[in-house]
């Protein structure tokens, strides 16, 4: 079988290990990255032609055509490409509109390759419904599939926020969409999930910039779930020193987390599987909190989440599982 992997870059993650796995199984695999297509003049740049009904690219002496592939896997295809790979600094000397235009151009090429593949009826692994990107809609969908979620409020009103805060023991705020780091001179800033201090409400005017709030759940531990082609596996992330944690990333940095394999209840697995199928996901990670009240609270789906790292805490071979579940019937 001939398989095309489309990604932003190549790095030692699940994609590259699975690439190697597929080769060992006897498949011909090509990994084409946005770096290949857009890093003009770079030693690994690849010349390509995109026409109405075909996308072809040349690598060394070989010409590849999209239509010759039996299967496509897109993994982190456009993942902050301009910002992280093409070096956004290059674009700072131009007005911002140039950078925005470049982003759209990259998106156009990426999207047309996928559209062509769909027209050619080539199966695309993880060709998910784009609505999964909206974290608010994820929460809405999760509830419709019977999962518990923390209540949320998106508001610009002080009165509404105060009322929400009065109804909850703890209020948190966090980005409602993906938000990376801010690089500013020599400093790097980040925005984690944070508890809203009641006294901070006094800093706000009666109307402020629309912001995302959620009920803070008193938790015992967090769960990182891996959805691997229909199968749900989980890793328990426990803070070594018991304390209330708003954002587990900080605990990671403080070396204060213990990861262990976790077996989810069957009814929860069923609900999560239905949710993933709703978004047409083949591979993703899902975050849960196990509340002090004993309930599991859905936090979010990461459609391009880290799989390889958490897979090392699981007794199942995630590569075999992905291969078995996904490829059966396609090979």
């Amino acid at each position: 079988m001939k398989i095309l992997i489309l990604s932003t870059n190549s790095s030692a993650d699940f994609k590259d290990f699975f690439h190697a796995f597929l080769v060992k199984k006897g498949h011909e695999v090509v990994n084409l990255t946005l770096s290949n297509l857009f890093n003009v003049g770079y030693r690994n740049s690849v010349s390509f032609e995109m026409e109405e009904d075909e996308f072809s690219f040349q690598y060394k002496d070989r010409l590849y055509k999209l239509s010759e592939f039996d299967l496509i896997w897109k993994r982190r295809f456009d993942f902050n490409f301009l910002q992280n790979v093409l070096n956004a600094k290059e674009y700072r000397k131009y007005p911002p509109v140039v950078y925005e235009y470049m982003n759209r151009e990259v998106w156009m090429v990426k999207d047309y390759i996928l559209q062509l593949a769909r027209l050619k009826e080539i199966y695309i692994i993880n060709d998910f419904d784009e609505t999964v990107i909206n974290k608010l809609y994820q929460l809405n969908a999760a509830r419709r599939f019977g999962l518990k979620t923390p209540d949320f409020l998106f508001t610009n009103s002080w009165d509404a926020l105060q009322a929400f805060h009065d109804d909850n023991q703890t209020t948190i705020t966090k980005p409602s969409s993906n938000f990376g780091y801010i690089y500013e001179k020599d400093e790097v800033l980040s925005h984690r999930t944070s508890i809203v201090n009641p006294e901070d409400l006094e800093l706000l005017k009666s109307s402020f910039f629309p912001s995302f709030f959620q009920t803070g759940i008193e938790n015992t531990y967090e769960l990182k779930c891996l959805f691997i082609a229909g199968e749900l596996l989980a890793v328990k992330q426990e803070v070594r020193q018991q304390k209330q944690v708003a954002d587990i990333k900080q605990e990671y940095r403080d070396n204060n987390i213990r990861n262990t394999e976790y077996h989810l209840p069957e009814d929860l697995k069923k609900q999560v599987k239905l949710l993933c199928e709703h978004f047409r996901l083949d591979l993703c990670t899902i975050d849960f909190i196990k509340g002090a009240d004993g309930n599991y609270y859905f936090l979010e789906i990461n459609h391009d989440g880290i799989v390889d790292y958490y897979g090392t805490y699981i007794s199942t071979n995630i590569y075999e599982l992905f291969y078995k579940n996904l490829m059966n019937g396609k090979i």
């Binding site: 190549s10 690439h19 190697a20 796995f21 090509v30 990994n31 690994n44 590569y319």
Partner: peptide, 20 residues
Amino acid sequence: TFRSNLLNSSQLTNKLSERS
């Protein structure tokens, strides 16, 4: 990062496949 030297599957190292 490996950039695109993984483009050609013959360039994959045994180490990667062994791990997977």
